[in-house]
């Protein structure tokens, strides 16, 4: 019990330290982010919607949203299949 708590706490501390070290340089500058700057500056002009998240999800990257809808459809069909072919009944010998 004590071993589990010590192990998880040490994992949390190590990963927070690593994340704070990495994110201090990459997430703060506009050096390598040409695509994000293009989406922010030309989003309103090309699609006509002030919500840039919607324009990225449905206009610039519509294929990824189609893939997510496929995942939802597969989940619903998968549960339906599991309910039809239920658990096997035990044979009474």
């Amino acid at each position: 019990m004590m071993k589990k708590i010590a192990f998880t706490l040490s994992l949390i501390v190590i990963f927070t330290f690593l994340f704070s070290v990495i994110s201090s340089d990459i997430f703060a500058s506009w050096k390598n982010k040409d695509v994000a700057r293009y989406y922010l500056e030309n989003g309103l002009k090309k699609t006509g919607s002030p919500n840039i998240v919607s324009s990225v999800v449905w206009d610039f990257r519509a294929f990824d949203t189609l893939g997510e809808e496929t995942v939802l459809f597969t989940a619903a069909v998968g549960i339906f299949t599991l309910m039809i072919f239920g658990p096997k009944k035990k044979k009474k010998a």
Partner: peptide, 30 residues
């Protein structure tokens, strides 16, 4: 090509309705 109105934003309104209907029926079936 109007701005900031309901009937605007070329194809996003149409696709939002279709995607919302799809996600709603899938969750309802689950």
């Amino acid at each position: 090509t109007r701005l900031f109105e309901l009937w605007s934003a070329q194809q996003i309104l149409f696709l939002n309705l279709l995607g919302g209907a799809m996600a709603a029926t899938a969750l309802l079936l689950i």
